[in-house]
Design a protein around this nucleic acid. Sequence first.
DNA 1: CGCGTCCTTGATTCATTTCAAAGTTAGTGG
DNA 2: CCACTAACTTTGAAATGAATCAAGGACGCG
Lengths: 254, 254
Amino acid sequence: MPSQIAQRTLAHVVQRPAPHPCLVGARVALRPQCLGCDGRPDTGQRLLERGDVCVMQGDPATHLFAVVEGFLRESTYDADGRAVSARIVGPGHVLGLAALNPTPSSYVATIEVLSRARVCILPADRARAWFTDHASFALDLAVLAAADLDHLRRDLALRAQPADDRVLALITELVRASTSDPLAWVRLPATREQLGEVLGLTLETVSRAVQRLVARGHLELRGRDLRLTSTHDATPSHPTSRSDAANPDKSTAT
Amino acid sequence: MPSQIAQRTLAHVVQRPAPHPCLVGARVALRPQCLGCDGRPDTGQRLLERGDVCVMQGDPATHLFAVVEGFLRESTYDADGRAVSARIVGPGHVLGLAALNPTPSSYVATIEVLSRARVCILPADRARAWFTDHASFALDLAVLAAADLDHLRRDLALRAQPADDRVLALITELVRASTSDPLAWVRLPATREQLGEVLGLTLETVSRAVQRLVARGHLELRGRDLRLTSTHDATPSHPTSRSDAANPDKSTAT
DNA sequence: CGCGTCCTTGATTCATTTCAAAGTTAGTGG
DNA sequence: CCACTAACTTTGAAATGAATCAAGGACGCG
C-alpha cells in the first residue's frame, strides 16, 4: 500500500524518537566511538553558536559534519551572492558528504548554524578508512543519502504548491523537529528571510503567508513565537495508475 | 579554488567519457559481474523501449536500476496525478536506492523510459549482500548518492532563475549527455511537456522559451531537431565571502 | 493522405516579486 | 528602568513572469 510520503520530516530528520540517545549514531556509525556513544562523547564534538559558519561553498571538502543537536542551514548561493536554495537540517543529519569523494572536491553549499548546536566534526580520510573496514556502515550511509535524496525530491515537489501551503508545511516540520508536543509554543530557529530561502520565496511573501495562515486559523502568533492550532498532516498523495511495466525479475546487473 | 559547480551534467551523468565501457561499472560495482563487464553482460540486462515503466511511485521497493544506455525519467506525482517533480537520468545512474533500505520501503517516484535504454535490474537483497561483503563499493555508492544530492540541489537552485535560463540549461545538459559534439544536431529525448515537468514549467512556457532562445541566437531549430550555437557554460558561481568559521580540526565524531 | 501527437502563438488572469515605508521586538548601555 | 538601536516583521501599491484557456499548425506514423 503506497503511502511512503506520509512521514513528514524536517529535511530528513527522523521524528520518531530513536532508541539511541544520539540521533546520528542511531542511523549510522561514523567512527568507532559511535558504537557506544550516548550523544555526548568525550572527544570530537563541537558546540556551535548561532551565526557560526561550518563550511563555505567552494571550500575544499575535507570534513563530514554530523548534527547531534540544534539546527543548521545548508544553502547555495549564486554569483550575485543570493541564496538560491537552502535546507534546514536538524539532529541526525550528516552533512558534507562531498568530502568522501576520493577525488578532491569542494563543498557545494555553505553550512551555517541557526540555533546553538552540537556537531561531530570528522576528517574525511578517517571516515573513509572507517567505512572501508566496516561495510555495513557504509551501506547505512548510502541509505541515509538515498533518504536525503527522496526528501529533497519531496521538497522539489512542494514547490509546485502555493506559497501558503509551503510555508505551513515548513513550519510544521520545524515545530515537529523542535518539540515533542506539536501544539506547543515555539520560537522558530529561522527568520522570515531564512524561511523564504528554504522555500524559494521572498521574505515578504513568507510574512504574508504567515498572516493568512493566522487569519485562517491554522496558526497562532504571539510576538516572535508561534503555535500550530491543529495536527492536520497536509500530506500529499499519489500517482495516477498506469499500466504496462518492465517488471523486474530475478536478474543480475551492471 | 572554488568552482565545483562548473561541471554541468545531466542529472548526475558524468560527461567526461569514462575509461570503463559501462558508465555504471566505471563508478560503482553493483555485483561481481560488474568487475569485468564491458557494458553488455551475458545476463541481467534488459532492453527497454520508450514508454516502458520500470517502477511506479508507491510500489514496494525491491530492485535497483542501473542505467547503462539511454534516458529514463524519474518523476513524482501528486494526488491529482500531476507531475510535481521530475528528473531525466542517463547512463551511469543508479535508481531505486530506496530498495536498499533494510526496513521495507516504497519507491517515491515513477521511473519511465524516454528513449530506448539498456538497464541492469538488480534485486535489492542481492545488492545488499554484495555491498556487505565489499565495503569499498558501498562507499562508492554513498559517494554516488551524495553527488546525486548535490546535483538535485543545483536543480533546486536553477528554479530561482527565469524560464529561459532553465530551459537552456536543461537542453545543454541533454545535448551533452547524448553526443560528444556539443554543437551537433540532436533530437531531444523528451517532449516540451516532459521538459516542463523536469523544470516545473508548463509546456507552453517551455515552447516560448525555446523560441526566445532561437530568436536570441542561442539555439537553432530544424523540425524537431535542434542544435546549440555556442559552448557557453551558463555556469553560475559563488558565495559572498563571509568571515568566522567553526573550523574543523583533528577531532573525531559521532 | 489522414489522423494523432506534438508544437506554436495569442489573450487574459493570477501569484509572487519588487520597491517602499512603517511598525515590532529584543538587546544594549546609560 | 528607560531610551536607543539594530534586526526583524508587517503592510501597501505597482510591476512582472508564468499559468491558463483557446485555437491553429506541423510533423510523422500507418
